[in-house]
Design a protein around this nucleic acid. Structure first.
Lengths: 182, 182
DNA sequence: CCTTGCTATGCAACCCGTTGCATAGCAGGA
DNA sequence: TCCTGCTATGCAACGGGTTGCATAGCAAGG
């Protein structure tokens, strides 16, 4: 289970409320991890009772109060110990691949529209990632400030998302060409 | 939920027992879907009571009897209706990406060994896929038998696995180069 | 003979993720 | 004024996935 750890990383990058975390999970962190607000609130509560995070009531004007969380020493330690233990390479879950193999027993050509829909979703996400990259990670001036680990590693993860979307688009084109032969 | 549907596809490709299905899920189907034997037995039982599959006791010599399942008409219909309804593009879960962003708050260089371990796992899987491709999908003779949908679509899915592993290896090299700068 | 390992199936418990629903205040447009 | 939509937090129920454990027969090797 790494939701706790994903939350710790996000809170280390910037403290925030459950609601704010949920929005980050829809955006940048969502590139490699998804979570709904219910999961986040539930886990945050447990993390607070375990002493991993500290909460602070923040009054706001024009909107409801919020509980802003930040990482406590225990949380930092928990993250460090998780970082030092090996994890298994992820197991994949591709519904679309099930459909593709299943199409052989139904209507291969009928799946073309569905695959095209997925291809569009991936080109959209790719465009989104690329514009985020341009905005957040402009090329560093040659002799400017020294490299910043937090920033560089965020960029490396984003490049992973970009590589993934490009791979998917290429593969879906391959699948479309195959489907169209039937 | 697509475990039912993955099982239907696998049983359409070839009838088999729960045990045999579990082994397939460790091998070819495991390229895009994982399931343990407990899940499979539980779901098979439900599918049988729902009339999606038929079971047949098969006595064997030198080993325990087995219950061999095959797809019933209702199961075929259920698969067809699932194939015709759109599904959401998958959401990703990459523990390793959490670790990479988390390393900024711990020890970036210390993550190198872990990433190298994952890289090895992916090169191993790639080699495994490629040898499977050579074994199961040799190039068709130019004017031989007409294309077979079942076979061609299985191959397309396998090419997806190959593309995925190649992408991951490239990205992990990128990550390693980034980590080594700190 | 004993142990290890494979085939074959299953129960029970727990945790995580998903879905539906609820509340409550404020902002902005029709 | 009313409705829609956003911020902000939460409960309850359900279902799927994971883990540990159990059984049982046979094969093969030490």
């Amino acid at each position: 289970m790494a939701l706790e750890h994903a939350i710790l990383v996000s809170l280390l990058e910037k403290p925030g409320s459950g609601y704010e975390l949920a929005r980050r999970f829809e955006r940048s962190i969502g590139y490699f991890w998804t979570a709904t607000h219910q999961q986040i609130y539930r886990v945050l509560k447990r993390m607070e009772t375990d002493g991993w995070v500290d909460a602070r009531e923040v009054a706001q004007q024009g909107r409801p109060d919020k509980r802003e969380y930040s990482v406590a020493d225990l949380g930092r330690a928990a993250l460090a110990s998780w970082l030092h233990e090996p994890i298994e390479p992820e197991s994949v879950r591709h519904d679309l691949a099930v459909k593709i193999r299943g199409a052989a027993f139904d209507d291969p050509a009928g799946l073309v529209r569905e695959v095209e829909r997925h291809r569009r979703a991936h080109t959209d996400r790719l465009a989104h990632y690329l514009s985020g990259e341009e905005r957040d990670f402009p090329p560093r001036p040659a002799d400017g400030t020294p490299p910043d680990a937090e920033r560089e590693l965020q960029h490396a993860v984003l490049r992973g998302g970009i590589a993934y979307e490009r791979m998917m688009i290429g593969w879906l084109d391959d699948v479309l060409a195959t489907l169209r032969r039937f």
